[in-house]
């Protein structure tokens, strides 16, 4: 499994997953291939974004990493351990934490800090250490001030940060986020993405972010584009968003600035061929001397 000197934190080999539809008598009606021969490898500390339109299999792929789904064919390795092997199950679920889409449906505790402690409680960690982990995790996502509150009193973005803290308290090597911002308002999305990026930068935790917001994907080291269960493209955000036409065929958007730059390039206004990912880069490539350049308009403008 070793590739070079580091073991891949996540590795799939010819992964196939089939949903079997049954009618009321239990006869097989049809088989849907949700994931089709996927081969990916993620190195420790990487920030991966998986994008694709609805039904492209991105969520199903994510559930394999946490051993919630098992491969129909092929295999998934998390830190070198096969997810199909029952004896590694809890170890894998601890190492690869998962954050889901709906913030209400994944908070178990009635108080924020109790929810963050839920994972460590399940792992059988001694009480004193649970408190240590809860304190650390809450401060890592900036939720310490709300620790005594009921989750029902938090905003969507805050709830998702609590969910992230809950996963963090299990000290995972990798966190998979399955469309964590899909149900949030713009400011909530911003909060969550900021917290996720901080975990990747500071704590060096591997991140797998599943999203359909392209402006969130630009922060990733690499993007996997999925279509009909297959990996259609992989590459850095700059490489991926360079292929505007191909993305359109997969019914995917590119960030607004990138699209604008692309159109300007087509009409000859922009000469350089580098892909633009932020407003600043656009201004640079336009080569217009502007009186004031706002510092705040960077990558974070949309997200």
């Amino acid at each position: 499994m070793a590739m070079g000197c580091v073991v891949d934190i996540i590795k799939t080999k010819d992964l196939v997953y089939e949903y079997i539809r049954r009618d009321e008598e239990g006869n097989v009606e049809g088989i849907t291939r949700a994931v089709d021969e996927v081969d990916v490898a993620v190195r420790p500390g990487e920030f991966i974004a998986i994008v694709g339109h609805n039904g492209s299999g991105k969520s199903t792929l994510a559930k394999h990493i946490n051993a919630i789904c098992y491969p129909t064919e092929g295999s998934v390795f998390v830190d070198g351990k096969d997810t199909a092997d029952e004896k590694h199950l809890w170890e894998i679920r601890r190492m690869a934490g998962m954050v889901f889409q709906n913030p209400d449906n994944q908070i178990i505790g009635q108080v924020v800090e109790e929810d963050v402690g839920f994972g460590p409680e399940n792992m059988g960690i001694p009480t004193a250490q649970i408190w240590e982990r809860v304190d650390e995790s809450l401060s890592a996502v900036g939720m310490t001030a709300h620790r005594k509150k009921s989750p029902n009193r938090l905003s969507g973005g805050q709830k998702q940060r609590v969910s992230i803290a809950g996963v963090l308290a299990m000290r995972p090597k990798c966190i998979i986020l399955d469309e964590p911002t899909a149900m949030l308002d713009p400011s909530g999305r911003k909060e969550v993405i900021r917290a996720v990026r901080a975990l990747n930068d500071v704590e060096k935790i591997t991140i797998v972010l599943i999203t359909h917001y392209m402006d969130e994907a630009i922060f990733a080291d690499r993007i996997f584009v999925m279509d009909k269960g297959r990996i259609a493209m992989t590459g850095t955000p700059r490489q991926i968003f360079h292929r505007v036409e191909e993305l359109k065929q997969l019914r995917l958007d590119v960030p607004y600035v990138t699209l604008l730059a692309h159109k300007l390039r087509k009409s000859g206004v922009i000469k350089s061929d580098t892909t633009v990912l932020s407003i600043e880069e656009l201004l640079d490539s336009l080569d217009i001397a502007l009186p004031v350049k706002h510092e705040s308009v960077g990558k974070s403008v949309n997200c």
Partner: peptide
């Protein structure tokens, strides 16, 4: 919701009352 919650609990290593410690 129940289905989602059960999945989230499993993902966070919930395996019933055995071997469980208490935060409080």
């Amino acid at each position: 919701r129940a289905n989602d919650l059960a999945m989230a609990m499993e993902a966070r290593c919930y395996q019933g009352g055995e071997h469980r410690t208490k935060m409080k």
